[in-house]
Measured scan of single mutants.
Amino acid sequence: EAHAAIDTFTKYLDIDEDFATVLVEEGFSTLEELAYVPMKELLEIEGLDEPTVEALRERAKNALATIAQ
């Protein structure tokens, strides 16, 4: 499951495998979680700032909209 989540994140969020791995290690496994989890939870991840989190959430929401079509 972790590998599938990493693949999904790299494909749809335009991030590298290392960043995707950090997200999975922090407990995220779906685009929905990244799109809708409280921003505070993402900001608790070391190295993430508000602009990065906002961009990540926007990419996740856009990916979900694209997949739904």
Rank of each mutant, 00 (worst) to 15 (best):
K11I: 05
V22I: 13
A55V: 10
A63T: 04
A60Y: 02
R57G: 03
M39R: 09
Q69Y: 03
L56A: 01
P38A: 09
D49S: 07
T66Y: 12
L56H: 00
V53A: 15
V37C: 11
T30D: 04
I67R: 06
I6W: 03
T66N: 11
A20C: 02
G27V: 02
I45L: 08
F19H: 03
L64E: 01
R57M: 08
A63D: 01
V53F: 07
A20L: 02
D7V: 13
E54H: 11
L34S: 00
S29M: 15
D49Y: 04
R59H: 05
E50Y: 13
I6E: 02
L42F: 07
E44I: 12
F9C: 02
F19D: 03
P38D: 14
N62C: 10
V37E: 06
F28A: 01
F28W: 07
L23S: 00
R57Q: 15
A60D: 01
T10K: 10
N62R: 15
A5M: 09
L42T: 03
R59K: 12
K11R: 12
E44V: 12
T8N: 08
L42E: 02
D7N: 13
D14S: 11
A35W: 05
K40L: 09
I67C: 05
L42H: 03
T8F: 10
A60W: 03
K40A: 12
E25S: 15
R59G: 05
V24D: 01
E32G: 06
L42P: 03
L42S: 03
A4I: 11
L31R: 00
P38Q: 08
I15V: 09
L42R: 04
A20V: 03
I6Q: 04
L13E: 01
F28P: 01
A2K: 14
V53G: 11
G47A: 06
K40N: 12
T8M: 15
F28G: 00
F28V: 05
A55M: 14
L42K: 04
T21V: 08
Q69V: 08
G47T: 05
A63C: 04
E44Q: 15
Q69N: 11
T21D: 03
A20T: 01
F28Q: 01
F28L: 05
K40E: 12
F9Q: 00
I15K: 00
H3C: 10
E17S: 11
L48T: 05
T8K: 09
E41R: 15
V24S: 04
V22S: 08
L23Y: 01
K61Y: 07
A63F: 04
K61C: 05
E44W: 09
T10L: 11
A65M: 10
Y36L: 09
G47S: 07
L34E: 00
E58G: 07
A5V: 12
T10A: 06
T10Q: 09
A65C: 08
G27I: 01
T8S: 07
V53W: 14
E46R: 13
D49G: 04
G27W: 03
P51S: 13
F28R: 01
E17D: 07
A35P: 02
F19W: 07
Y12H: 06
A2D: 09
T10I: 14
E58R: 15
D14C: 14
V22T: 10
R59Y: 04
T30Q: 05
F19Q: 06
A4F: 11
T10C: 08
L43T: 05
A63G: 05
L42M: 08
E17W: 13
L56I: 09
E54W: 08
A55E: 08
L13F: 02
D7H: 15
I15A: 02
E32D: 07
T10N: 03
K11Y: 13
E26A: 15
A55L: 14
L34M: 05
L43F: 06
I15Y: 01
L48S: 02
V53C: 08
L13Y: 01
I45R: 05
I45A: 03
L42C: 03
L31G: 01
Q69D: 10
D7A: 14
Y36F: 12
E32W: 15
S29R: 15
E58M: 12
E41H: 13
L23E: 00
P38R: 06
I15L: 06
D7S: 11
E50D: 06
V37Q: 09
N62V: 12
M39K: 10
T52N: 05
E25L: 15
I67L: 11
A68P: 06
E41T: 14
L48H: 02
T30E: 03
V24N: 03
D14I: 07
Y12K: 02
K40F: 10
N62I: 14
E54R: 15
A20H: 01
M39E: 06
K40H: 13
V24I: 11
A20K: 01
Y12M: 07
M39N: 07
A60M: 02
V53Y: 06
N62Q: 14
G27E: 01
E26P: 01
Y36C: 07
G47V: 05
L13I: 03
A63S: 04
I45N: 03
L56K: 00
Y12L: 07
I15N: 00
E41V: 15
E58F: 08
K11G: 03
L34Q: 00
D49P: 04
L23F: 03
V53H: 02
L43K: 05
D49V: 04
A2W: 15
A5G: 05
E54G: 08
D18C: 08
D16K: 07
K61Q: 09
I6G: 03
I45F: 04
E25Q: 15
T21I: 12
E44D: 11
A5Q: 06
L23A: 00
A63L: 04
A4C: 08
E46M: 12
A60Q: 01
A65W: 08
P51W: 13
D14T: 06
L43Y: 07
P51H: 12
L31D: 00
Y36P: 01
Y36H: 11
E44A: 15
L31A: 00
Y36K: 10
E44M: 14
R57C: 04
A4D: 10
T21K: 15
Q69C: 08
D16S: 14
H3E: 10
L48R: 02
E50M: 13
K61W: 06
A55G: 07
L64D: 00
I15E: 00
Y12C: 05
T66H: 11
Y12P: 01
L48N: 02
T52R: 09
T8C: 08
L64K: 02
Y12F: 09
A4G: 08
A5L: 10
Q69W: 02
L34Y: 01
L23N: 00
I6N: 02
A65L: 12
G47H: 05
T30R: 08
V24E: 02
H3W: 13
I15S: 01
F9S: 00
A68C: 08
A2Q: 14
Y36M: 11
L13V: 02
E46Q: 11
I67V: 07
T52C: 07
D16G: 10
N62T: 13
E44G: 13
T8Y: 11
E41K: 14
I6F: 04
A35T: 06
T66Q: 13
A5T: 08
L56R: 00
I6A: 05
E26V: 14
D18L: 11
T30H: 05
Y36E: 08
L64N: 02
F19R: 04
Y36D: 07
L48C: 03
D18Q: 12
T30C: 05
V22Y: 15
D16P: 10
G27P: 01
L48V: 08
E32K: 07
L34P: 00
A68L: 09
R59V: 04
